[in-house]
C-alpha cells in the first residue's frame, strides 16, 4: 500500500516537473526579449528541476543516491540566480533595451 502511494506521488511529481519544463521552453521561444526569457529559464531551473528531482528521490528510496540528488537540487538552486543575474546585467550593460515600459528612474 505504501509502495503504491509513493509510486503515485512520484509520478505526479514527474508530471508536474515536466509540465513546468515544457512551459518554460515554450516561454523561452515565445517571450519577446532576453529579459523576459530569463524568467522562463528561471522556471525551468527552479520548479522543473526540483519536481523532477523530487520524483527521482521518491523512486530511489533511502541511500547515498538520495543525498546526491538533494545536492544537485541545492546546487541548481544556488547557481540559477547567479547565471540569470549575470546574463541580465551584461545585457543591460551592452545596451540591449527591454520591451515594455520603464517606471521612474532606472540605473
Amino acid at each position: 500500500m505504501l509502495d503504491i502511494s509513493i509510486e503515485i506521488i512520484s509520478i505526479i511529481s514527474f508530471v508536474v516537473g515536466v509540465f513546468f519544463i515544457l512551459t518554460g521552453s515554450i516561454g523561452l521561444i515565445r517571450l519577446p526579449d532576453v529579459f523576459s526569457r530569463i524568467h522562463a529559464a528561471g522556471m525551468i531551473d527552479t520548479a522543473g528541476a526540483s519536481f523532477v528531482i523530487l520524483g527521482m528521490i521518491l523512486q530511489s528510496g533511502f541511500s547515498l543516491i538520495t543525498a546526491k540528488l538533494v545536492f544537485i537540487g541545492i546546487f541548481i538552486f544556488f547557481t540559477s540566480p547567479i547565471t540569470g543575474h549575470v546574463t541580465a546585467n551584461l545585457a543591460r550593460k551592452k545596451g540591449v533595451n527591454p520591451v515594455g515600459k520603464t517606471k521612474g528612474k532606472t540605473l
Binding site: G24, V34, D45, V52, L69, I72, T87, A91
Partner: peptide
C-alpha cells in the same frame, strides 16, 4: 537575435541534460 539569448538557451539545455543524465 542576441548573444545573451543563445547563452541563456545553452544554460537551460545544460540544466535539462543534468536532469536527463540522472533520469
Amino acid at each position: 537575435r542576441t548573444t545573451f539569448d543563445r547563452i541563456l538557451a545553452a544554460n537551460s539545455i545544460g540544466t535539462l541534460i543534468v536532469l536527463g543524465i540522472s533520469v
